[in-house]
Design a protein around this nucleic acid. Structure first.
Length: 494
RNA sequence: CGGGGUGUAGCUCAGUCCGGUAGAGCACUCGCUUUGGGAGCGAGAAGUCGUCGGUUCAAAUCCGGCCACCCCGACCA
């Protein structure tokens, strides 16, 4: 295999591509911007789904499915929404092909009366449906999530980070009161933050988007923002308070307890396969992928060391026992007894693929009742007792999960700066990192900074996101000199 | 959509300037020796050189059109 991975300090973008390829997470496909997800990549997504889905269910949500195709007219119903998405929609205009002198051509006779758009997001089709479902305050709230693919025709794509088609989940809820909808929006943001930190081992900042970064059609967009290894920010999840915008556009009202018609309050929230990109750029190194144990498709790889004149049956037997014991203990484990690859090759391969723990067992170990355990995150190897295997593996996986989070948290802390001058703001975002600076709240200042530094306001952070920094304290905007009500997070972003 | 780059074996690429029998490494198949950090030797299979056209006795190579992909920007989860 001999996969070469470009070192991060040489070319970070190339390193990212190399890791995706070498770890077999995704491949490009014949259509630009769409990707093939082989098992390593898809299982990672499945594990993310499992974690998130459990949290959605635990907060009272149910899964449902809405159609891929949306009538063009639906998108036009909400003014900001159409403006935000119109430029990147795939449109279906015909329903038939025909032979033409040996060529396959679109049959001009088969034009649809109304073009269909491939969903870039599902608010419109869902609110058209909710309008039929909702009559009374007794029908509320509606708490629904869907796992789906969506299409946004992007100019420039990068595997996971920005693809034309991607997998995601989108929650869409309907509520009787504004407060309830706002609470839902906040609750789901907390779910995302918990998932990012506890499952992905990726620290995030919670906050609100500025008006210019808001979801088209939302009243408020909440987000979690993570800092990647190269100092660029990545929006990892968003939760939108939609107010009554979609209810008004789709005439979705309910009768309240006083028998009056009221518009329904809405939220939507989503995370996508982009999280896989975030995961890669949070933990991985120049040797390849590094995965947190909770999400790793394979948590433990067992490599038997076979010898020409050794007792290979004893080694394989011990390896199988180990595998069975670990499977019974609930781990995702594989025993790699393929004989066409040598142990050294397998070691290297599992490192590239990010398997958290590797166990190697050879004749010496069988004799001694031991096994060699190697950690992917630290590279550390140690000989452990086989009779305590499951417990040791459990502890080690937990230690890796915690260690990855701590390392990422520390890196973020080291690259987060409180800045009080425009010069310093420019320095920080140029070098890479979060700059906590006062902002006067105007779109003009925001645009000026974006124009001059390429950095954007990632979010207006919630209180207590940065230990030791009071971002709520009033001050002066270093760019405009105008008064500021608090600090925001500036950074260059993916 | 602007700037740059690349299309040759499954993959990474050499060969193109200066036209003359299609190459290497890795991967793959078979055999033997190996196996505690990406094995060695031998044999073998594998390419209408992105595509269409032009120049020429002769084109991977020169000329023109087209297409695709990658990187950097503008736009975006």
């Amino acid at each position: 295999m001999a996969e070469r991975i470009t070192p991060r300090d040489q070319d970070y973008a190339q390193w990212y591509q190399d890791v995706v390829r070498a770890a077999k997470l995704a491949e490009t496909s014949p259509v630009r911007g769409s990707m093939v997800l082989p098992p390593n990549g898809y299982e990672l997504w499945e594990n993310m789904q499992r974690g998130l889905d459990g949290m959605f269910k635990a907060t009272g949500h149910r899964n449902a499915y809405f159609p891929l195709f949306i009538p063009k007219s639906f998108l036009a119903r909400e003014a900001e929404h159409v403006e935000g998405f119109a430029k990147e929609c795939a449109v279906v205009t015909h329903y038939r092909l025909k032979e033409d002198n040996g060529d396959l051509v679109v049959d001009p006779e088969a034009e649809l009366e109304e073009p269909l758009i491939v969903r870039p997001t599902s608010e419109t089709i869902i609110w058209d449906t909710y309008a039929k479902w909702i009559q009374s305050w007794r029908d509320l709230p509606i708490l629904i999530n869907q796992w789906a693919n969506v299409v946004r025709w992007e100019m420039r794509t990068r595997l996971f980070l920005r693809t034309a088609e991607f997998l995601w989940q989108e929650g869409h809820t309907a509520h009787a009161t504004e407060q309830e909808a706002v609470d839902e929006t906040r609750q789901m943001l907390d779910v995302y933050a918990t998932f990012a930190e506890e499952w992905m081992a990726m620290p995030v900042v919670k906050g609100v988007k500025t008006a210019s970064e808001r979801f088209p059609g939302a009243v408020d967009t909440y987000c979690i923002e993570a800092l990647m290894q190269d100092g660029k920010a990545l929006q990892a999840g968003t939760s939108h308070f939609l107010g009554q915008n979609f209810a008004k556009a789709f005439e979705c009202t309910f009768q309240n307890q006083d028998n009056e018609a009221e518009y329904v309050w809405a939220t939507s929230w989503g995370v996508s396969t982009r999280l896989i990109g975030a995961l890669i750029m949070t933990h991985s190194d120049d040797q390849g992928l590094v995965l947190p144990p909770k999400l790793a498709p394979t948590q433990v790889a067992i490599v038997p060391i076979l010898k020409k004149n050794g007792d290979n049956e004893a080694v394989l037997g011990a390896a199988r026992e180990m595998r069975d014991a670990l499977l019974n203990a609930g781990f995702r484990v594989i025993l790699d007894d393929r004989d066409q690859y040598r142990p050294g090759w397998k070691f290297a391969q599992y490192e590239v693929e990010g398997v958290p723990v590797r166990l190697a067992i050879g004749p010496r170990d069988v004799e001694n009742g031991t096994v060699e355990m190697a950690r992917r995150d630290t590279g550390e190897k140690q000989s452990i007792q086989r009779d305590a295997l499951a417990g040791t593996v459990r502890e080690t996986l937990d230690a890796i999960q915690a260690g990855l989070f701590e390392a990422a948290r520390q890196r973020r802390e080291e690259n987060t700066y409180v800045v009080d001058s425009y010069d310093r703001l420019q320095e920080v975002v140029e070098a890479g990192g979060f700059a906590l600076a006062h902002w006067d709240g105007t779109a003009e200042t925001e645009a000026k900074v974006k124009e001059e530094t390429k950095a954007t306001i990632r979010c207006i952070p919630f209180p207590d996101q940065f230990p030791g920094v009071d971002t709520q304290e009033a001050g002066t905007d270093p760019v405009s000199g105008a008064p500021s009500e608090g600090r925001v997070v500036y950074a260059k972003a993916y």
